[in-house]
Design a protein around this nucleic acid. Structure first.
Lengths: 142, 142
DNA sequence: AATAAATACGATTAAAATTGTCGTATTTAA
DNA sequence: TTAAATACGACAATTTTAATCGTATTTATT
């Protein structure tokens, strides 16, 4: 969203990557779900760095969320059924595991045995993942 | 938790500050809720940088979550009723606003009018805050 | 009174993660 | 043939996070 300098909130935030992806999807959906939209158009409209946005659209293309058409007059269009993709899956496809802490995914924590909050944090993570499993991309883009 | 190098998950994560605070609270509660525990003891036990942990405990002291006693044989003890502090309040006291994006807290986003995902993200933020409002510190530290 | 061990905290530095750019290749409509 | 679009790896800049430094204060112990 191209804030002036820095973010205000630090906790449980999403990345600009996800933010730009959501903006692009919503734009495409609102404008013309069937036709093509170029990265340039979206970048200019929302003041997002074009190359960066293009990369994100390319990644979504690899993930079959959008379809890319090359050449002049090319662009992207939504390919997937957004109502069928949970926010959890979407986030994790773009950014990897979702959770408050990572000692549950990665185990190179040098004192995993001594850690005393693993179990309760695991529980919270499960709650969060469950919450985002119940919401679909459609709820953001519609 | 002193992972070897870097984190695996990028989304919706908490900071080490919060992580260390939770570890400390749980340690104090499990060990001796009435007696004093020094920052040094916790730092050594969980391999957390001592000065950093001390600062976090000091902040919790200012927030009346723990009580500090100076001098040798000094330390910290839990002061608040952990069952009465929601995780939302705890997170926000330590780190500021909680949410996926900040354009709702800060309005210096240079194109807030054009932004097309404000409303849906706001909804998700509300859901998250509600979820963490329902959980208390006790659920992590008990 | 002196000492030592603890908290208190602002300032600074270091490290890591995120965000953005560059350069080049490929595709394809006009 | 050209121009405008996607494709993408490598790199650079920026921002954020984590850790350290230095010094002051408090207070139990000797």
């Amino acid at each position: 969203m191209v804030n002036s300098l820095y973010r205000e909130n630090e906790l449980l935030k999403i990345t600009r990557k996800v933010e730009y992806a959501l903006i692009a999807l919503r734009h495409m959906q609102a404008k013309d779900p069937k036709g093509l939209t170029s990265a340039k158009e979206i970048a200019i409209h929302y003041r997002i760095p074009k190359q960066l946005l293009a990369k994100i659209l390319q990644q979504m293309s690899r993930d079959n969320i959008v379809e890319a058409v090359q050449g002049p007059a090319g662009g992207y269009r939504i390919r997937a059924n957004l109502g069928e993709i949970s926010l959890k899956d979407f986030f994790e496809r773009l950014e990897g595991p979702l959770g408050m802490m990572d000692c549950f995914f990665e185990s190179d924590c040098i004192q995993i045995n001594a850690c005393n909050i693993r179990v309760p944090i695991q529980r919270i993570n499960d709650n969060m993942r469950e919450m985002f499993s119940k919401m679909t991309l459609m709820e953001v883009t519609q």
